[in-house]
Protein backbone atom coordinates (compact mmCIF):
# COMPACT_ATOMS: atom_id res chain seq x y z
CA UNK A 1 0.00 0.00 0.00
CA UNK A 2 2.91 2.38 0.70
CA UNK A 3 4.03 1.92 -2.89
CA UNK A 4 0.63 3.12 -4.08
CA UNK A 5 0.71 6.17 -1.83
CA UNK A 6 4.19 7.17 -2.95
CA UNK A 7 3.15 6.57 -6.55
CA UNK A 8 0.26 8.97 -6.04
CA UNK A 9 2.50 11.52 -4.29
CA UNK A 10 4.79 11.35 -7.27
CA UNK A 11 1.95 11.88 -9.70
CA UNK A 12 0.79 14.96 -7.84
CA UNK A 13 4.22 16.37 -7.08
CA UNK A 14 4.05 18.95 -9.86
CA UNK A 15 0.41 19.92 -9.39
CA UNK A 16 -0.52 23.18 -7.75
CA UNK A 17 -1.74 22.64 -4.17
CA UNK A 18 -5.29 23.91 -4.61
CA UNK A 19 -8.26 22.61 -2.61
CA UNK A 20 -9.63 20.97 -5.71
CA UNK A 21 -6.36 19.14 -6.42
CA UNK A 22 -6.15 17.97 -2.82
CA UNK A 23 -9.66 16.64 -2.99
CA UNK A 24 -8.92 14.78 -6.20
CA UNK A 25 -5.84 13.23 -4.65
CA UNK A 26 -7.75 12.17 -1.54
CA UNK A 27 -10.54 10.63 -3.57
CA UNK A 28 -8.17 8.78 -5.86
CA UNK A 29 -6.16 7.44 -2.94
CA UNK A 30 -9.39 6.21 -1.34
CA UNK A 31 -10.44 4.42 -4.50
CA UNK A 32 -7.00 2.88 -4.93
CA UNK A 33 -6.90 1.75 -1.33
CA UNK A 34 -10.33 0.15 -1.65
CA UNK A 35 -9.28 -1.66 -4.81
CA UNK A 36 -6.01 -2.74 -3.22
CA UNK A 37 -7.78 -4.18 -0.17
CA UNK A 38 -10.29 -5.98 -2.38
CA UNK A 39 -7.51 -7.55 -4.50
CA UNK A 40 -5.58 -8.59 -1.39
CA UNK A 41 -8.69 -10.21 0.08
CA UNK A 42 -9.10 -12.13 -3.20
CA UNK A 43 -5.71 -13.68 -2.48
CA UNK A 44 -3.50 -11.58 -4.77
CA UNK A 45 0.07 -11.00 -3.60
CA UNK A 46 1.26 -7.55 -2.56
CA UNK A 47 3.07 -7.12 -5.88
CA UNK A 48 0.19 -8.32 -8.01
CA UNK A 49 -2.28 -6.06 -6.22
CA UNK A 50 -0.06 -2.97 -6.42
CA UNK A 51 0.73 -3.71 -10.06
CA UNK A 52 -2.92 -3.95 -11.01
CA UNK A 53 -3.94 -0.85 -9.07
CA UNK A 54 -1.18 1.20 -10.68
CA UNK A 55 -1.88 -0.09 -14.17
CA UNK A 56 -5.55 0.79 -13.80
CA UNK A 57 -4.92 4.25 -12.40
CA UNK A 58 -5.24 6.01 -15.72
CA UNK A 59 -3.76 9.20 -17.00
CA UNK A 60 -3.07 12.42 -15.18
CA UNK A 61 -3.74 14.58 -18.24
CA UNK A 62 -7.33 13.44 -18.18
CA UNK A 63 -7.63 14.64 -14.62
CA UNK A 64 -5.83 17.88 -15.28
CA UNK A 65 -8.44 18.81 -17.84
CA UNK A 66 -11.34 18.78 -15.37
CA UNK A 67 -9.22 20.45 -12.69
CA UNK A 68 -8.38 23.21 -15.12
CA UNK A 69 -4.60 22.81 -14.89
CA UNK A 70 -3.86 21.22 -18.22
CA UNK A 71 -0.98 23.53 -18.96
CA UNK A 72 0.98 22.55 -15.85
CA UNK A 73 0.90 18.84 -16.55
CA UNK A 74 2.00 19.17 -20.11
CA UNK A 75 5.66 18.36 -20.02
CA UNK A 76 7.89 20.90 -21.62
CA UNK A 77 8.57 19.60 -25.11
CA UNK A 78 12.03 20.24 -26.44
CA UNK A 79 13.15 19.83 -30.00
CA UNK A 80 14.75 16.48 -29.24
CA UNK A 81 13.47 13.67 -31.43
CA UNK A 82 11.25 11.19 -29.61
CA UNK A 83 8.38 8.77 -30.06
CA UNK A 84 5.28 9.02 -27.90
CA UNK A 85 4.08 5.71 -26.41
CA UNK A 86 0.70 5.30 -24.69
CA UNK A 87 0.08 3.12 -21.65
CA UNK A 88 -1.84 0.70 -23.83
CA UNK A 89 1.00 0.37 -26.30
CA UNK A 90 3.57 0.01 -23.51
CA UNK A 91 1.55 -2.77 -21.87
CA UNK A 92 1.13 -4.60 -25.16
CA UNK A 93 4.83 -4.28 -25.86
CA UNK A 94 5.81 -5.78 -22.48
CA UNK A 95 3.35 -8.64 -23.04
CA UNK A 96 4.70 -9.37 -26.51
CA UNK A 97 8.29 -9.27 -25.23
CA UNK A 98 7.42 -11.77 -22.53
CA UNK A 99 6.03 -14.06 -25.20
CA UNK A 100 9.03 -13.56 -27.50
CA UNK A 101 11.40 -14.24 -24.61
CA UNK A 102 9.68 -17.56 -24.00
CA UNK A 103 9.88 -18.62 -27.65
CA UNK A 104 13.52 -17.59 -28.05
CA UNK A 105 14.41 -19.36 -24.78
CA UNK A 106 12.84 -22.56 -26.05
CA UNK A 107 14.78 -22.22 -29.31
CA UNK A 108 18.07 -21.76 -27.45
CA UNK A 109 17.37 -24.69 -25.15
CA UNK A 110 16.66 -26.91 -28.17
CA UNK A 111 19.79 -25.72 -29.96
CA UNK A 112 22.14 -26.40 -27.04
CA UNK A 113 20.41 -29.70 -26.31
CA UNK A 114 21.23 -30.67 -29.90
CA UNK A 115 24.90 -29.83 -29.29
CA UNK A 116 24.76 -31.76 -26.04
CA UNK A 117 23.39 -34.86 -27.77
CA UNK A 118 26.10 -34.59 -30.44
CA UNK A 119 28.73 -34.58 -27.66
CA UNK A 120 27.10 -37.63 -26.13
CA UNK A 121 27.42 -39.53 -29.42
CA UNK A 122 31.00 -38.36 -29.89
CA UNK A 123 31.79 -39.48 -26.35
CA UNK A 124 30.27 -42.90 -27.06
CA UNK A 125 32.28 -43.06 -30.25
CA UNK A 126 35.44 -42.59 -28.18
CA UNK A 127 34.44 -44.92 -25.40
CA UNK A 128 35.33 -48.48 -24.64
CA UNK A 129 31.67 -49.42 -24.14
CA UNK A 130 31.53 -50.57 -27.72
CA UNK A 131 33.62 -53.63 -28.39
CA UNK A 132 35.76 -53.71 -31.51
CA UNK A 133 33.45 -56.40 -32.86
CA UNK A 134 30.30 -54.24 -32.71
CA UNK A 135 32.24 -51.23 -33.88
CA UNK A 136 33.42 -53.00 -37.01
CA UNK A 137 29.81 -53.85 -37.91
CA UNK A 138 28.80 -50.15 -37.88
CA UNK A 139 29.45 -47.94 -40.88
CA UNK A 140 32.35 -45.52 -40.48
CA UNK A 141 31.55 -42.41 -38.38
CA UNK A 142 28.14 -43.89 -37.62
CA UNK A 143 27.71 -42.41 -34.14
CA UNK A 144 29.10 -39.00 -35.08
CA UNK A 145 26.81 -38.99 -38.09
CA UNK A 146 23.71 -39.59 -35.98
CA UNK A 147 24.83 -36.86 -33.59
CA UNK A 148 25.30 -34.36 -36.42
CA UNK A 149 21.92 -35.31 -37.85
CA UNK A 150 20.26 -34.63 -34.52
CA UNK A 151 22.14 -31.33 -34.25
CA UNK A 152 20.98 -30.18 -37.69
CA UNK A 153 17.43 -31.18 -36.81
CA UNK A 154 17.60 -29.21 -33.57
CA UNK A 155 19.01 -26.18 -35.43
CA UNK A 156 15.98 -26.29 -37.74
CA UNK A 157 13.61 -26.39 -34.75
CA UNK A 158 15.53 -23.61 -33.01
CA UNK A 159 15.41 -21.37 -36.08
CA UNK A 160 11.64 -21.83 -36.21
CA UNK A 161 11.35 -20.63 -32.60
CA UNK A 162 13.76 -17.71 -33.22
CA UNK A 163 11.70 -16.54 -36.16
CA UNK A 164 8.43 -16.88 -34.23
CA UNK A 165 9.93 -14.99 -31.29
CA UNK A 166 11.51 -12.31 -33.43
CA UNK A 167 8.43 -11.20 -35.29
CA UNK A 168 7.29 -7.68 -34.45
CA UNK A 169 3.80 -6.77 -35.48
CA UNK A 170 4.19 -3.13 -34.63
CA UNK A 171 6.66 -0.29 -34.47
CA UNK A 172 8.33 -1.68 -31.35
CA UNK A 173 11.76 -2.00 -33.00
CA UNK A 174 11.81 1.79 -32.80
CA UNK A 175 11.94 1.54 -28.98
CA UNK A 176 15.51 0.28 -29.33
CA UNK A 177 16.66 3.23 -31.36
CA UNK A 178 14.55 6.24 -30.40
CA UNK A 179 13.96 8.15 -27.19
CA UNK A 180 10.63 6.94 -25.79
CA UNK A 181 8.32 9.47 -24.20
CA UNK A 182 5.64 8.29 -21.75
CA UNK A 183 3.01 10.06 -19.68
CA UNK A 184 3.95 10.25 -16.02
CA UNK A 185 1.52 7.59 -14.80
CA UNK A 186 2.67 5.05 -17.38
CA UNK A 187 6.27 5.82 -16.51
CA UNK A 188 5.63 5.24 -12.81
CA UNK A 189 3.75 2.04 -13.60
CA UNK A 190 6.66 0.68 -15.66
CA UNK A 191 9.16 1.69 -12.99
CA UNK A 192 7.17 -0.26 -10.44
CA UNK A 193 6.84 -3.31 -12.68
CA UNK A 194 10.56 -3.26 -13.48
CA UNK A 195 11.35 -3.15 -9.78
CA UNK A 196 8.99 -6.05 -9.14
CA UNK A 197 10.71 -8.07 -11.85
CA UNK A 198 14.19 -7.45 -10.43
CA UNK A 199 14.35 -10.37 -7.93
CA UNK A 200 13.54 -12.82 -10.72
CA UNK A 201 16.25 -11.32 -12.92
CA UNK A 202 18.86 -11.53 -10.16
CA UNK A 203 17.90 -15.10 -9.35
CA UNK A 204 18.05 -16.25 -12.95
CA UNK A 205 21.44 -14.65 -13.52
CA UNK A 206 22.91 -16.10 -10.33
CA UNK A 207 21.63 -19.61 -11.11
CA UNK A 208 22.69 -19.34 -14.77
CA UNK A 209 26.23 -18.22 -13.94
CA UNK A 210 26.59 -20.99 -11.36
CA UNK A 211 25.44 -23.60 -13.90
CA UNK A 212 27.87 -22.42 -16.57
CA UNK A 213 30.77 -22.35 -14.12
CA UNK A 214 29.83 -25.88 -13.16
CA UNK A 215 29.89 -26.86 -16.83
CA UNK A 216 33.32 -25.30 -17.42
CA UNK A 217 34.59 -26.90 -14.22
CA UNK A 218 33.43 -30.30 -15.43
CA UNK A 219 35.68 -30.03 -18.51
CA UNK A 220 38.68 -29.04 -16.39
CA UNK A 221 38.05 -31.72 -13.80
CA UNK A 222 37.35 -34.49 -16.31
CA UNK A 223 40.44 -33.77 -18.36
CA UNK A 224 42.61 -33.49 -15.25
CA UNK A 225 41.30 -36.70 -13.70
CA UNK A 226 41.53 -38.79 -16.84
CA UNK A 227 44.68 -37.37 -18.43
CA UNK A 228 42.79 -35.75 -21.27
CA UNK A 229 41.19 -38.96 -22.55
CA UNK A 230 38.89 -37.98 -25.45
CA UNK A 231 35.90 -39.79 -23.99
CA UNK A 232 35.99 -37.73 -20.82
CA UNK A 233 36.62 -34.43 -22.56
CA UNK A 234 33.59 -35.04 -24.75
CA UNK A 235 31.65 -35.90 -21.64
CA UNK A 236 32.82 -32.65 -20.03
CA UNK A 237 31.82 -30.58 -23.07
CA UNK A 238 28.49 -32.38 -23.03
CA UNK A 239 27.91 -31.33 -19.43
CA UNK A 240 28.88 -27.75 -20.39
CA UNK A 241 26.31 -27.69 -23.21
CA UNK A 242 23.69 -29.15 -20.90
CA UNK A 243 24.38 -26.39 -18.39
CA UNK A 244 24.27 -23.79 -21.18
CA UNK A 245 20.97 -25.25 -22.42
CA UNK A 246 19.50 -24.55 -19.00
CA UNK A 247 21.34 -21.32 -18.21
CA UNK A 248 20.95 -19.34 -21.45
CA UNK A 249 17.12 -19.54 -21.41
CA UNK A 250 17.25 -18.31 -17.81
CA UNK A 251 19.32 -15.27 -18.87
CA UNK A 252 17.27 -14.58 -21.95
CA UNK A 253 13.80 -14.94 -20.49
CA UNK A 254 14.45 -12.59 -17.56
CA UNK A 255 16.87 -10.35 -19.45
CA UNK A 256 14.59 -9.64 -22.39
CA UNK A 257 11.77 -8.54 -20.12
CA UNK A 258 14.10 -6.30 -18.14
CA UNK A 259 15.45 -4.83 -21.39
CA UNK A 260 11.91 -4.15 -22.55
CA UNK A 261 11.37 -1.98 -19.46
CA UNK A 262 14.73 -0.27 -20.00
CA UNK A 263 13.88 0.49 -23.61
CA UNK A 264 10.60 2.14 -22.67
CA UNK A 265 12.13 4.05 -19.76
CA UNK A 266 15.34 5.01 -21.62
CA UNK A 267 17.51 3.74 -18.78
CA UNK A 268 20.27 1.19 -18.13
CA UNK A 269 21.51 -0.24 -21.41
CA UNK A 270 18.99 1.88 -23.29
CA UNK A 271 19.72 5.49 -22.45
CA UNK A 272 19.45 7.82 -25.44
CA UNK A 273 23.22 7.65 -25.97
CA UNK A 274 23.34 3.88 -25.83
CA UNK A 275 20.32 3.62 -28.11
CA UNK A 276 22.17 5.69 -30.68
CA UNK A 277 25.27 3.53 -30.23
CA UNK A 278 23.19 0.39 -30.58
CA UNK A 279 21.63 1.65 -33.78
CA UNK A 280 25.17 1.94 -35.19
CA UNK A 281 26.36 -1.53 -34.14
CA UNK A 282 23.03 -3.16 -35.07
CA UNK A 283 24.10 -2.91 -38.72
CA UNK A 284 27.04 -5.24 -38.16
CA UNK A 285 25.78 -7.50 -35.37
CA UNK A 286 23.54 -9.61 -37.65
CA UNK A 287 26.24 -10.41 -40.25
CA UNK A 288 28.86 -10.75 -37.50
CA UNK A 289 27.05 -13.47 -35.57
CA UNK A 290 26.04 -15.17 -38.80
CA UNK A 291 29.72 -15.37 -39.78
CA UNK A 292 30.76 -16.60 -36.34
CA UNK A 293 28.14 -19.35 -36.46
CA UNK A 294 29.17 -20.37 -39.96
CA UNK A 295 32.83 -20.32 -38.92
CA UNK A 296 32.12 -22.41 -35.85
CA UNK A 297 30.21 -25.05 -37.78
CA UNK A 298 32.75 -25.11 -40.63
CA UNK A 299 35.73 -25.45 -38.29
CA UNK A 300 33.96 -28.14 -36.25
CA UNK A 301 32.80 -30.24 -39.19
CA UNK A 302 36.08 -30.02 -41.10
CA UNK A 303 38.38 -30.80 -38.19
CA UNK A 304 35.93 -32.78 -36.06
CA UNK A 305 37.62 -31.13 -33.05
CA UNK A 306 34.33 -30.47 -31.27
CA UNK A 307 36.11 -30.62 -27.95
CA UNK A 308 38.13 -27.48 -28.89
CA UNK A 309 35.93 -25.49 -31.25
CA UNK A 310 33.43 -24.23 -28.63
CA UNK A 311 36.16 -21.73 -27.68
CA UNK A 312 34.92 -19.69 -30.70
CA UNK A 313 31.95 -18.41 -28.70
CA UNK A 314 33.63 -16.71 -25.74
CA UNK A 315 36.28 -15.23 -28.05
CA UNK A 316 33.64 -13.97 -30.50
CA UNK A 317 31.65 -12.38 -27.66
CA UNK A 318 34.68 -10.48 -26.34
CA UNK A 319 35.72 -9.45 -29.85
CA UNK A 320 32.23 -8.15 -30.57
CA UNK A 321 32.40 -5.90 -27.53
CA UNK A 322 35.71 -4.53 -28.75
CA UNK A 323 34.46 -3.97 -32.31
CA UNK A 324 31.29 -2.25 -31.05
CA UNK A 325 33.26 0.14 -28.86
CA UNK A 326 35.64 1.01 -31.71
CA UNK A 327 32.69 1.77 -34.00
CA UNK A 328 31.09 3.97 -31.38
CA UNK A 329 34.33 5.75 -30.55
CA UNK A 330 34.80 6.55 -34.24
CA UNK A 331 31.20 7.71 -34.62
CA UNK A 332 31.32 10.05 -31.63
CA UNK A 333 34.62 11.52 -32.78
CA UNK A 334 33.10 12.22 -36.17
CA UNK A 335 30.17 14.03 -34.55
CA UNK A 336 32.48 16.38 -32.67
Amino acid sequence: METILSYLDNMFAHMPKTAEVNRAKKELSQMMEDKYNQLRSEGKTENEAVGQVISEFGNLNELAEVLGISSQVQEATDDQHYILVSQNEAEQYIESQKKSAKLISIGLAVLFSGLMILMLFLALDNSSFLSEATRSKLPEDFLGGIGVGILLFSIAIAVYFFIQGGINHDRSDLFEREYVKLDSSTKAMLQFEKQAHLPKLRNNIAIGVALILLGVASIVIFSALFNGADFYIFLGVMVLFLMIAIAIPLFVSAGMVDSAYEKLLNIGDYTLEKKQAQARTAKISGPYWGLVTAGYLAWSFITNDWQTTWIVWPIAAVAFGAIASIINAMATRKER
Binding site: L28, E56, G58, N59, E62, L63, V66, S185
Partner: peptide, 17 residues
Protein backbone atom coordinates in the same frame (compact mmCIF):
# COMPACT_ATOMS: atom_id res chain seq x y z
CA UNK B 1 -14.27 -3.00 -19.32
CA UNK B 2 -12.44 -1.47 -16.39
CA UNK B 3 -12.83 2.24 -15.88
CA UNK B 4 -9.56 3.85 -14.93
CA UNK B 5 -9.54 5.74 -11.64
CA UNK B 6 -8.72 9.05 -13.30
CA UNK B 7 -11.57 8.57 -15.79
CA UNK B 8 -13.99 7.82 -12.98
CA UNK B 9 -12.92 10.75 -10.83
CA UNK B 10 -12.93 13.13 -13.79
CA UNK B 11 -16.47 12.02 -14.57
CA UNK B 12 -17.63 12.49 -10.95
CA UNK B 13 -16.08 15.94 -10.92
CA UNK B 14 -17.61 16.95 -14.24
CA UNK B 15 -21.06 15.58 -13.37
CA UNK B 16 -21.03 17.40 -10.05
CA UNK B 17 -20.03 20.69 -11.66
Amino acid sequence: YTMKETTLYSAFNRLEK
